[in-house]
Amino acid sequence: MMTATFGEFMSHIERVKQQYSAVKNIKDKLPHGHLLIQMAVSENYTGNTLEEIQSVYWNNCLISLHPVVIYFRGEENELKHTSYVHV
């Protein structure tokens, strides 16, 4: 069981390394006038009010965060980025 799980984990690590390498390659070769947009999602944060009553505790709203990073070339052809978080 442990060896099978370890093998799956090592396979996962290899895929992550390849993905990071591919993204780095895209950033290094990003032409002027083009964008690289990386997006993710982080779901189910619970929203609470500062002074909530007990009934609000059982009726919390869920919030999803959508972080975005946009890479682009600046005037001097240097790689720049800007970040946003959509709620």
Rank of each mutant, 00 (worst) to 15 (best):
C61F: 13
V69A: 10
E51H: 15
I26A: 12
V16R: 04
H12M: 06
Y57L: 11
L79E: 01
G7P: 01
H66P: 00
S55Q: 03
Y45K: 05
V41S: 10
E78P: 02
V41R: 08
G7Q: 07
H12Q: 07
S42W: 09
V68T: 15
H32S: 12
V85D: 10
P67S: 02
M10P: 00
S64I: 06
E78W: 03
Q18F: 10
M1F: 13
Q19D: 05
L30A: 01
T49L: 04
I13Q: 09
Q19H: 07
Y84S: 04
M10H: 04
F72C: 00
E75L: 08
L30C: 01
Y57G: 03
V56T: 06
T46E: 15
V16E: 07
G47P: 00
E75G: 03
G33E: 02
E14R: 10
K17Q: 12
Y45M: 08
H34E: 10
M1A: 13
A4L: 13
E52D: 09
T5S: 11
N44D: 12
N59Q: 09
G33Q: 03
R15L: 05
H32F: 05
S11R: 07
L79I: 08
M39T: 11
Y57T: 10
G74M: 02
L65C: 07
N25V: 04
P31L: 12
E76M: 07
M1S: 12
I26P: 00
V23P: 01
I63N: 02
T46V: 13
P31K: 07
T82A: 11
M2R: 14
H32W: 03
S83R: 14
S21L: 12
L30Q: 00
E76K: 11
E76H: 12
V69G: 01
N44E: 09
V41H: 04
G7V: 02
E43M: 12
S55E: 05
P31F: 08
H81A: 15
A4W: 05
Y84D: 03
S83A: 13
N25E: 15
Q19Y: 07
K29E: 05
F72S: 00
Q19I: 08
Y84M: 12
T46R: 14
T82D: 05
S83C: 11
N77F: 05
N44Q: 08
H86I: 15
L65D: 05
F6V: 13
I26N: 06
L35A: 04
I37S: 02
V87G: 13
I26W: 10
G74R: 01
I37R: 06
E78C: 04
A40M: 05
Q38R: 04
F9L: 10
H32E: 09
K17S: 09
E52W: 00
L30D: 00
